[in-house]
Design a protein around this nucleic acid. Sequence first.
DNA 1: ACTTGGCACTCGGGACAAAAGAGTGCCAAG
DNA 2: CTTGGCACTCTTTTGTCCCGAGTGCCAAGT
Lengths: 333, 333
Amino acid sequence: MLEERRLDVLRAIVEGFVLTNEPVGSRAVAERGQLGVSPATVRNDMAALEEEGYIVQPHTSAGRVPTDKGYRLFVDRLSTVKPMSVAERRAIETFLEGAIDLDDVVRRSVRLLAQLTRQVAVVQYPTLSRAEVRHVEVVAMTSTRLLLVLITDRGRVEQRVVDLSEPLEDDDVADLRLILGSALHGSRLVDVPAAVSELPDTCRPHLRNTLSALVAVVLESLVERPEERVLLAGTANLTRSTLDFPHTLRPVLEALEEQVVLLRLLGSSNEPDLITVRIGAENDVEGLQTTSVVSADYGFGGVGVLGPTRMDYPANMAAVRAVARYVGELLGP
Amino acid sequence: MLEERRLDVLRAIVEGFVLTNEPVGSRAVAERGQLGVSPATVRNDMAALEEEGYIVQPHTSAGRVPTDKGYRLFVDRLSTVKPMSVAERRAIETFLEGAIDLDDVVRRSVRLLAQLTRQVAVVQYPTLSRAEVRHVEVVAMTSTRLLLVLITDRGRVEQRVVDLSEPLEDDDVADLRLILGSALHGSRLVDVPAAVSELPDTCRPHLRNTLSALVAVVLESLVERPEERVLLAGTANLTRSTLDFPHTLRPVLEALEEQVVLLRLLGSSNEPDLITVRIGAENDVEGLQTTSVVSADYGFGGVGVLGPTRMDYPANMAAVRAVARYVGELLGP
DNA sequence: ACTTGGCACTCGGGACAAAAGAGTGCCAAG
DNA sequence: CTTGGCACTCTTTTGTCCCGAGTGCCAAGT
């Protein structure tokens, strides 16, 4: 059927609106859209598209603007992820290559992504769950306070302070280190809970309490609070669309301060190389219902960008995918 | 001389403007300012104050607004840090008490400070330089890659990855750990460079290269890149004064993304219990010339808030001081 | 059955003018 | 030195008008 052209009209509207930030009228669509039809024809299609809820007009004598539903159709059926130029790929590569550190990789990635897309960028620190324990360290800070340090194979270090109910000798500390070390060395973090849960029962009585405390901390820090962190960059880019968000900016900034919220934004898609797009109200996060999020998984965590629903989806999807791939490679082996 | 009343007029103007965000006229000063004089009298004083550059009028028929110089005089001579209520002190205390972790202390402090002042809050992670080395760990990630971990007495952990030019045996790793450990244990971080710089010369030849590499990393991470980090919260509060910053918001957000800039903001004052206020152009940081910063040192780093020059200085100074004190106590022993 | 040009209609926004208000500076008197 | 009065200056508000953009609908064309 002639749906074909209607979709082209929608595409033209989306692209036009993204470009100009102004409602786009039938004439503009007819001319810029490369369809060989007159404005009047376009108007008919637009009426139909509006009927079905893909576009709206802000007021009677204005052009049309895509709705969330319209953008959704656009990304699902009308947009192709536009491949990045060679120059861009090289830029990404060289920019990330200089990283000296796990933290540095993450820091550089967010900044890069923010710069590339001119949106707010979010990058999650590699999640621990698939990492292996490389080393366990128990250090006495005082006689009743231990510092427990887990070092993983990806160069990540987790630390926890443990307060003890009874004081401890240096020898005991060494013992604990040994016990925990042999129990954990080489296990993947997901398997750690199983590996440690029985430990207290099998050790010398006078260490039992202390070991229980340590084990509890290990379990807590790994299971209950996976301590997933994210890094943010490019909030200044929100002001570019300050025209869009006149006073909607505040709730957005507020939402972005919550780590939990950010994690939820990146959360859902665990399949690498799948790009997730959440448009407007599809984000059931308070304050972000006028924004869209494009995210992807790099294998050990997520990366994404956030901006107004009126964003250049193809470009942002491309950038997110590219960065996710590079980060994945960088942190993979 | 009658300077006395002029200062009262200035105070009334500052307080009025902070309160209402609108230029304040002679009538308002006369009424709200509790001085027993007529508007006409006030006008004379205002003319004088304007003459001397403490206030300006945005346009001919508007009230007066304080200049940076006016605010400066205000904080120097007219404002007393208003003590926090008992309830507030208790709130601070209980809020910070729940911290489980060094990182957690910092996180809670920023949030608290942002909430208390309704400004942007900045808290620096405790600087390493006065900390003592509690433990040194060397872990082999691969045969040519080591992870070096320094654990300090305040529960802070510094880590660095070191790539080696030649592969290493497990025994060697243990040796290295021992050598570094005995050299560093107990030294204050500032003294570490001296403690390690001679090490390579005194050890067995076949470890010399590797040890040099490690030492180089230690030196670099401690001296050249002190890796001072800061945490930020409350950026959303900037939008409250979006009326002040119509489009000045963008450069501010941009500036706040630079760690270096934030460090400079907290930087100068190393004396605990001294509150530093930098007003408007006194911040020689690009983009922050329309903002003021109130900061203090808690002993191992700085805390502060940033907001429009039109801010409630006494209240913010009180909050910053209170938080700095609590954080200092919390991290002190 | 679509497409198209024509046409009347709606509305937002810019231009302009007049009026209202706020606040000042200055002066002359207390 | 203070104060009330007053003229003056600007900004802000309000109101009106008009233009242009864009639409919807219709009747004619293919």
